[in-house]
Amino acid sequence: MSVDATGTSAGTALPPGIALCGIGDEAGASLDEQITALSTLGWGHIELRNVDGAAVADLDDAAFEHLVDRLAAADLTVTCVDSRIANWGRPITGDFEVDLRELDILAERCPRLGTRFIRVMSYPNDGLSEESWRQEVLTRMGKLAVRAEEAGLVLLHENCAGWAGTEAARMRELLDEVDSPALRLLFDVGNGVAYDYEAYDLLPEIAPYVAHVHIKDAIGTPDDAHYMLPGDGRCRVEDSLRFLLDQGYTGIWSIEPHINVRPHESLAVEGKGGVEAFIDYGRALERLVAKLAGERV
Rank of each mutant, 00 (worst) to 15 (best):
V3E: 12
A5T: 13
T12E: 03
I18Y: 12
G22S: 08
A27C: 09
A27V: 09
G28F: 02
A29F: 07
Q34E: 09
T40K: 12
A54S: 14
D58F: 01
D60I: 15
A62V: 14
T77H: 13
S83Q: 01
T93R: 13
G94D: 11
D104G: 04
L106K: 04
E108D: 13
R109W: 05
G114Y: 10
M121F: 06
M121V: 01
D126M: 10
G127F: 00
G127M: 10
W133D: 06
T139L: 09
R140N: 10
G142T: 13
K143P: 01
A145Y: 07
A145T: 08
E150W: 03
A151I: 14
G152R: 08
V154G: 01
H157G: 00
A164F: 04
R170Y: 15
R172V: 15
E173Q: 15
L175T: 10
E177L: 15
D179P: 07
F187V: 01
E198L: 05
Y200L: 10
I206L: 08
Y209P: 02
A211R: 15
D217L: 03
A218W: 00
P222R: 10
A225E: 06
H226W: 05
Y227V: 10
M228G: 07
L229F: 15
G248L: 08
G248V: 06
G251W: 05
G251F: 06
I252M: 14
N260Y: 03
H264L: 01
E265H: 15
E265D: 06
L267K: 11
A268K: 03
V269R: 15
R283G: 04
E286I: 00
E286K: 07
V297L: 09
